[in-house]
Amino acid sequence: MSDFLVKIENNTYSIDILDTKKVKVNDEEFEYQLNFSDNGECVLNFGNKIYDATILSHNDSLITLAINNDVFEIEVKDKTEQLLEIFNKGREEKFKDVVIKAPMPGLVLKILVNIGQKVEKGSSLLILEAMKMENEIKSYTTGVVKEIRVQEKTSVEKGDVLIILE
């Protein structure tokens, strides 16, 4: 087992950190130089290129990072977490709930679905008004509406749970 298992955009990398200059990626050794500053800025020399990234958030094993105006969500699992995952495999629930959260604060104008309704990927779930615009909140997956946590004409904060699909 390697030090870290990193999942990014459907690719998985096994990383072993040998020291502050050498790292193994999928059993191949590379040289690198990496500096961090207090505010999450990092500069990495790898290959013949320089990467300038910003760590935006770090929750449990999930890191959100910005580079070249793109944002990546990266899952990093250390040895303990990798072991835990192996242990938990098969014990996981068959159906996992999908939580639709408010991407920004705003006013719930209209709820477009009912409990029990089947929705497709891309179906509109509700209309959230923010910045003078009506924004359609769409489902990013197929599922059935299990719970509606908000009411029409109420305000929500960023990250509030709107709808739960199963």
């Binding site: 990193v6 990626v25 290959g47 890191i63 990266i74």
Partner: peptide, 10 residues
């Protein structure tokens, strides 16, 4: 590069 960066960061 990002895989290396985040692993070292963690």
């Amino acid at each position: 590069a990002l895989a290396i960066l985040t692993a070292v960061y963690v």
